[in-house]
Amino acid sequence: MEAFAYAAPRTVAEAVELLVGANGSARVLAGGTDLIPQLQEGRRRASLVVDVKRIPDLCVLDWNPEEGLTIGAAVPCAQVAAFPRVQQHYPALHTACTLIGSVMVQNRASLGGNLCNAAPSADSVPPLIVHAAEAVITGPGGTRRVPVESVCTGPGQTCLAPGELLVRLHLPVPPPHTASAYLRFTPRNEMDIAVAGVAAAVTLDPAEGTCAHVRVALGAVAPTPVRAIAAEEYLAGKPLTDEHLRRAAQLAVEAAKPISDVRGSAEYRRHLVTVLTFRTLRAVRDRLAGGPAARS
């Protein structure tokens, strides 16, 4: 590994100052499960590594009935998964936090890192999108809030300007009669990366039995995680019948712009989007009905 300077600031302001000073050649370290292999293998370089785990704002994990869930950018997945409100209100995110890497990886890897590493296959990002999460980003010009679906701009690229730091994620309280799920497809059962992933969240109109609100997001099938707008619009106002789920699954493919690589062909990935969208929506329906939710 090439030599780099290391700093562990105690405040967001100090961290931002360090990042600004490094002029784009600094890297942020939380769990390091992506960064350290990248530095070791020379896939990324850093003159300065800024360890953000000692900044209290980045280690917050909190829920309240008004604002919903706040997750500090450095909180490890295992801690998020163990937080009771997460499983209760954000099951898609809970699933993602138990799927990333392995148990050892989950003990280190943060959601902030998963988002900022901006891999198209990042497991936590489609669930964050369907839960309408916002990213709170602080930089030399102040603090801004950005919907998570706008954070990733391409493989390995985000909307964060040099000097900006992801501080935390906010997930609003889901309305009543809401459920969510995340399913991904990997050849192996663990220690693998999604060939395709689908998250969905549905809020039912209990009087009509129809979908009041639907979000579907796809991972690993486009340069960034994307929403499947056509599928969402189609389901709005309709009951979750098999027929509707099947049609929505077909429409979800419209949002997929996959590449062919060693992990799967574009054709296979598009096919997986239909299979996974159907199964994810079915799992959501099961959860709304209070039944057991399937995992792929």
Binding site: Y268, V275, R282
Partner: peptide, 20 residues
């Protein structure tokens, strides 16, 4: 006999996703 190879052998793209 990876998932994609098995899927293709099973008829691959010709097959609609089944429901359930």
């Amino acid at each position: 006999m990876s998932p994609e190879r098995v899927w293709r052998a099973l008829g691959g793209a010709d097959q609609p996703a089944s429901d359930d």
